[in-house]
Amino acid sequence: MEQQPATGRPPQQATSYPTSLGTSDASTITLLGHDLAGELMGKVGFGELALWLVTQRRPEPGEVRVFEAVLVALADHGFTPTAIAARLTYLSAPDSVQGALAAGLLGGGSRFLGVTEDCGAFLHETVSAHDGPLPGDGDDAGWDELALKTVRAARSQGRLVPGLGHPVHKVQDPRTPVLLGIAEENGLKGPHLRLFEAVGRVHPKVLGRTLPLNGAGVCGAALADLGLPVGLLRGFALLARAAGLLGHLAEEQRSPLGMDVYLSVDRNARYVAPPGG
């Protein structure tokens, strides 16, 4: 028998890559331990599936209702920078819908969309670090005391309190009371939402002015109360905004305005000599 030449390398072992998500073979696709075609398609909604994929457990109907309310709240807010970026990228590269969609999603940061994660993380930090039992559901005074301590600490550290204020909704963000109500109706108004409400009540004592609790912030609090990892909350905001951006691209195909935006800026640009130049 002809011998194989020695390579100096150990023999290869069978490789295994474990996953609890999806696998497939020649005839089936398995997702979350279920037959995709036979058990999930037409029987599980997209919002329910997204929540299931992250939590690795099938969510309760009330959890799905709160989660989908968050997705709807964050889907689109008109001609935001993310939407304009998507439209202008499509203008430049109409052969690359994926590039235009990605351009809009890449603009999700601390000023737009990122507040959802920032607020959820801010609240979670306070809830997790609290020494002793948290105030009860009806103990507004207890929540106010904790919120006042939290806002004062943030102010002393020079930190912004995420979730406060909105560039358009100066008195009340219309999404905030609706999402609070949906969470309450489904028994999912937990410590993050209660603390966020309390921040809304007490922050004028520290900041000297009254700001509305914005929708992105209440979405972050609601997602945190669903037990979702705070480090993924921006991902859910992007998931929601992907639908809105796709709508903008569809509208751009039907009734383009990207060229008007480009020309408006380009034709009104004026040269200004640099300082000292």
Rank of each mutant, 00 (worst) to 15 (best):
V44E: 03
Y90N: 12
G215T: 11
L188G: 04
D260C: 04
A6S: 13
F79S: 10
G120H: 08
A198V: 04
S27K: 07
A73Y: 10
G104K: 01
L148S: 10
L148K: 08
L195D: 03
V54K: 05
D260F: 12
V202A: 11
E68V: 13
M1P: 15
L211N: 08
T116G: 08
L146Q: 09
D95K: 11
T82Q: 14
A224W: 08
A243K: 06
G132E: 02
R175Q: 04
I182R: 01
G22C: 15
E48W: 01
I182H: 01
T19Y: 02
V218Y: 04
L226W: 08
G22A: 15
F46V: 14
L193C: 15
P204S: 06
P5Q: 10
A221L: 08
A216S: 14
S20W: 01
D266K: 12
A129D: 03
G235C: 00
L245D: 04
L263W: 08
G108P: 08
S110T: 09
L232Q: 11
A237M: 11
G227N: 05
D95P: 13
E63W: 00
G47D: 11
E197D: 00
P11C: 06
V54Y: 01
A73S: 15
V230L: 15
L31S: 09
A93C: 14
H124P: 07
G22L: 13
P18V: 00
D35K: 09
A250W: 11
D76K: 01
H130M: 12
P204R: 02
L226A: 03
P177K: 02
G142M: 05
R201C: 05
R201M: 10
S27E: 10
T210W: 04
A73M: 14
H34W: 09
K149M: 13
W52G: 11
F236L: 06
V206G: 00
S16V: 13
G217Y: 09
C119Y: 10
L195R: 04
P162C: 12
A198Q: 03
P162K: 05
E184V: 05
A121H: 11
P256R: 03
L180M: 14
G227Y: 08
P229C: 06
H248L: 09
F236G: 04
P204G: 11
S96T: 02
H34K: 15
P212T: 00
H34Y: 14
L106C: 15
V97N: 06
M41Y: 08
N186R: 04
D225Q: 10
V218Q: 00
G109Q: 03
L123S: 13
G120A: 12
P274R: 00
Q56E: 10
G235L: 02
A216V: 06
L179E: 07
G158R: 07
P274E: 03
R267F: 05
N186S: 06
G158A: 10
L207R: 12
C219E: 05
V206L: 06
L226S: 06
L32Y: 06
H192Y: 06
W143N: 00
L238C: 14
A103R: 02
L193A: 11
H248F: 10
Q4N: 09
D25P: 12
E117N: 10
V151D: 04
L263D: 11
P94D: 04
P274L: 01
G22H: 05
D139I: 02
G107Y: 14
P274K: 02
G217H: 07
A75I: 08
